[in-house]
């Protein structure tokens, strides 16, 4: 099975203190530490496991610049067979549909049975998976938390729905799935993996390679534009407990008892 996993490089919230830029329409991006978007990492692990069990090949792709190659290499060191970087000045400023348009061109250029994305980018709005499926006219399932490969070009998939229930579905290949974190336990990258992929050439495709109209992507094609970016003011109704860890625990228990959450 040919599997394509769409990944993205995002600011690592565990490594950075996110601050607003002075212009107020973005975050301060100087000196930010970036990592692979966490949900995408689960998607890659799932792809590696499917390929290992059912046979196949895993390609990781990202839309971005040369700097984003880092996450492709990371996922390749983890076990993806190859990486593809989609990079072009015309791609900058793409909205969700723009990114989906670029990815669609790659999917049509290759032959992928299964396309996976993470549930959402940590700095995004969970748009690309669904749009990509629609543009390709592929079936789509979101928030997938288990996959079984069935005979006859089908997958059995599960998703968790509100209240902890699980819904099982069958879906025809080729399809697009957005993968929920917790579907598996992504492996750590090993030293040998890092070494093996260090000098592997990663092909880069731009608008002309993909046959993408520059006017349909990037800032030119974006119909959703960010106008503001801010941190909400601390609202009323939130109470920050003060004191040592022990004191905070005691206060919390008292509060929970008072509100009927603990008997």
């Amino acid at each position: 099975m040919e599997i394509l996993v769409c990944v993205r490089r995002v600011p690592d919230t565990s490594e950075n203190e996110i601050q607003l830029s002075s212009a107020g329409n973005d975050i301060e991006r100087d000196d930010l530490v970036y990592s692979v978007n966490e949900p995408d990492n689960y998607a890659v692990e799932e792809a590696i496991q499917i390929a290992a069990n059912a046979g196949g090949n895993v390609t990781v792709v990202t839309v971005g610049s040369e700097e984003d190659e880092e996450v492709l290499r990371r996922e390749m060191a983890m076990g993806a067979n190859q990486g593809v970087l989609l990079s072009d000045d015309a791609f900058a400023g793409s909205d969700g549909k723009g990114i989906a348009t670029i990815l669609k061109a790659l999917v049509q250029k290759g032959h992928y049975d299964l396309v996976l994305t993470g549930t959402q980018a940590e700095d995004g709005g969970a748009q690309v998976g669904g749009m990509l499926a629609a543009l390709l006219d592929y079936p789509f399932a979101s928030l997938v938390n288990a996959i079984t490969v069935l005979d006859g070009g089908k997958l059995k998939i599960s998703r968790e729905i509100e209240g902890g229930n699980r819904e099982m579905s069958e879906i025809d290949l080729p399809c697009v799935l957005s993968i929920q974190t917790g579907i598996n336990e992504p492996r750590y990258v090993g030293m040998r993996g890092i070494r093996q992929v260090a000098s592997v050439e990663i092909p880069t495709f731009g608008t002309s390679d993909l046959g993408v109209d520059p006017a349909s992507v990037g800032t030119a094609g974006a119909k959703v534009k960010r106008t503001d970016y801010f941190m909400p003011v601390l609202g009323k109704g939130a109470e920050i407990l003060q004191g040592s860890q022990e004191e905070i625990i005691d206060q919390l228990i008292e509060l929970m008892k008072a509100k009927g959450g603990l008997n």
Partner: peptide, 17 residues
């Protein structure tokens, strides 16, 4: 190097988690 940075990140990720 990029490779050394990758290693640093990987070890940090393991250590933190």
């Amino acid at each position: 190097s990029d490779e050394q940075l990758q290693l640093k990140k990987t070890v940090r990720e393991f250590a933190e988690r």
